[in-house]
Every structure is written in C-alpha cells, then in structure tokens.
Design a protein around this nucleic acid. Sequence first.
DNA 1: CGTAAAATTGACGCTAATCAAGGTCCGTGG
DNA 2: CCACGGACCTTGATTAGCGTCAATTTTACG
Lengths: 235, 235
Amino acid sequence: MIRPMETAVIQEIITRCALMDGLTEEECRAIVQHSRHYEILQDRFFFHQGEDATAMYIILSGRAKLTQVTQAGEQVIVGYCGAGDGLGIIVALSEIDYPLSAEAVTDCQAICWQRDQMKALMLTYPQLAINGMGMIAQRFVKLQERYRDIATRRVEQRVARALLRLVRQFGKKVDGGVLIDMPLSRQDLAEMTGTNIYNVSRILSKWEREEWIASQRQRVILCKAHELVVLAEDL
Amino acid sequence: MIRPMETAVIQEIITRCALMDGLTEEECRAIVQHSRHYEILQDRFFFHQGEDATAMYIILSGRAKLTQVTQAGEQVIVGYCGAGDGLGIIVALSEIDYPLSAEAVTDCQAICWQRDQMKALMLTYPQLAINGMGMIAQRFVKLQERYRDIATRRVEQRVARALLRLVRQFGKKVDGGVLIDMPLSRQDLAEMTGTNIYNVSRILSKWEREEWIASQRQRVILCKAHELVVLAEDL
DNA sequence: CGTAAAATTGACGCTAATCAAGGTCCGTGG
DNA sequence: CCACGGACCTTGATTAGCGTCAATTTTACG
C-alpha cells in the first residue's frame, strides 16, 4: 500500500512544478483544490493509448513510462515521467484521444483534474494554459531530438544517449557513480532505442567490462559518465 | 517573381484554415489585418533552427520543408507544410527558440505575425490559442507516429510510408496515378526515413520495375498505391 | 528451494551502410 | 545550337552492423 501524502506536502510539490510557474501560492492552492488525489500501483496504467481522454495528471511521486504500441504489437517507449511532470496535458488543451499509454513503473501518487475542470481553470488562470503549452513545447522539442537520434545514430550511441538522458532526469548519487533511480530492464532500453534486448545486453556487457557502468537486473549505475558522453556525441 | 495574391483570395484561404476554426469571418478578417504578407523564394529559409523566434506563419501557397541538423552536419527532415499549414506556431505559444529550420522548396506565399502581436490576438480571441494548441497536438501525434515507424520498421517500409503520407498531403491526380506535387529528391526521401540515397534509389528502382510508381528526377508518381499500402502496413 | 522473469552469449544470416564508378538530366554561357 | 559543369540518380561490390534464433545462466521472490 502507498502511504498517503499530507496536503501540505502535496501543495509544496505542486507549487514548485512547471505547471504553476508564475502563479501565486494562493492561486496554486485554489487550483489544487479542484483536483483529486490519485494513487496508482506499480504496473498499472494511468490511461491507455486510444482511450477517450478525460483526465490529466501531475505526478507527485513515482515514475511513469510513456509507451506506444504498433499494429504488430511491438512497444515503443516515448519517455519517462517523474515528480512534477505532467501526464495527458496535451489532451487538456485539445480535443484528441490519448495518443499513448502511461504506465506506473513504481507505485505513483499524482493529482488529477478532469479535462473540463482543467479547461475552466485555464480560463480563470490563463497562466495555467500558457504553462501547459510550454510543457508541451518542451516535450515536442525533446521528441524531435530523439527522432533525430534514432534516424542518424548507431545503436550503441542511441543506448548511450538514452542512459545519459535518464541519468539527467532520474540520477541519484550512490557510491561508485550515479544510479538511474527506477526499474529499467534491457527490454526497456531496447524499446527506447529501437533495437532488441540482445544488442542492449551485449553493449551493456561491454561497458561493464570497461567499468563505465555497473548494472544488475533492472538497475543501471553510471560510473564513468564522461566516457559515455564522448561516445554519445562522437567527439 | 511571385505574382501577389489579392486580399480577397488570401482571406478566403485563411478563413478555411485550421487556425481559424470556430471564428467568424469578421474576427478572422480582424486577425488577418494584423498580419504581414510574406513572400519567399525557392530554397530560401523562413527561419533557422536555433534562431530567436520572433514570428509565426501560415502558408498560403507553396511548400516548405522542416529540417533539423545534427552536430555531425547530417540533415533530418521532420516534415513538409503546404497551404493552410502553420510554421512556428509552437513558438507563438511558448518562450523557446525555433527548434528546427523551415525552407521553401517552392516559391511560397504566407502571412506572418510577430510573436507578441499573435499573443495579444490570442488574448482577444481565445479560440485562436485553442486552435493553435490543436495544431501542435496534431503535429505532436504525427511526430510520435513517425518516431514509432523509424524505431520499428525496415527501410523499405519506412520509404513506403513516407510516400503514402506525402501523397495524402500533396497528392495531385495525373494520368497514370497520383503525383506528389513538389520537388522531392532521393536525398529528401533518405532524410525523411533515416537512410541514404543508395537505398532509396534501389528501392524506388525496384518499385518502378514492378510499375507501382513512376519517377523522374525530383518527381514521384504513385501508380499502384494499394501495393504500397500492403507493404507499408505489412498485411 | 523451486519457478519464472531477466539477462547473457554464441552462431548465423540478412539488411542496409559504405565506397566506387558511371550515367542522365538540366541550365548556362559561349 | 552545342558544349560544359554540376546536381541528381543508378548500380555493383563489399562489409559492418544488427536482428534473429537457440541455449544457458543468473536473479528475485514466494
């Protein structure tokens, strides 16, 4: 079971997240008041690709994985989200279905607004809409980068770049290096980079031999991030 | 030289474009009044990746190519735009630089708003902002699709899918099939699909032998689109 | 301790990237 | 009008990279 958060803590997290940029604590509180608290256990879904979009979320704790599925049934991972990140923001701002699925890869807490509720709030607090757009713009630019990566880089570079992005987003200092602080399988890395587990495994094994990384099942620690950067940027 | 359009014609085109959905002709006229007319010759740029974003455009005629460049200097084509499509909308809605370059591949006419002007208009006509967001959402979803394609499909399928997208967007009935109505080199197709001209050339040659397409320098006509669909969707 | 999921490793073959050479088309200037 | 140069396209040969299959090992957890 998840231990519920206190309202004050929630307020604290939300106030500092990008969606609330430029809003007073007062306004922020009012906006949160219209949200519902939301808990979701590991491996369950916030929503599925193609579902009618009714809600948007801000994650308070935990990690979520954004995925798409092809007709052939292959998964593609579009990205990960953590505390402060938004899920389904795009659908609060336009009339489309969820274009991807969001899955909790650890137990998550979040707050949640109904689409119509959020639309109303955005009319009252236009800054909210502006922030939402900014967040989408950010995502858009990131996705374009990754599109470019996958179109032009070799598998080894793509994996290196994926790890570096994850470490920037979820890195946690531990002795011996920086841990990517969430469950991350070879399969996940394969789905992020458009390859398969065999290649990923071989590549990670090689890096492990060179002591650039240390990895166990579902865990990766970067020890010599610099070496990976050199590889990733081909310097 | 480009033959300038009459105001009435411009109005006609703009009124029907996605940015003006749900706005009265009256409002639409007022919005257009705050724009500048803009002409740009083939091979020149609307803007470059990384430039400070000051303007957004709606294309009236012609075709524009959206590209990104990697550090290594390789180009990636993110997509094409034609009449009614917007350029740089994302930057009108958030505070970022242009994330890509937009190049006229034929002579283009467009209308153009300064970022601040457009922001002011969006405050007066909120529907304008909503439409802008919808357009970005559309693009976002499309980009995700293409990301998925490139991550999971073979080169031949990717080329087929690229051609089918282009034909849907710019197809023009001619005898013998449907022409992709703009200059389109092997190089362009390679940059759209994350491969090289040699592969594209071989693939198109093969399809030409099978009479699925007819192609000349910078031109492609789809004769048996159905066959390409079968290939593209692996049925 | 047993089981299932995750990860590893080797072998094999195909796809697609690369290199090299030559052909075709088009606009320009003599 | 013709010759030339440059951009575009084609094709073959070669090889590296990568996907796939099969078999085995490791790890987590009940």
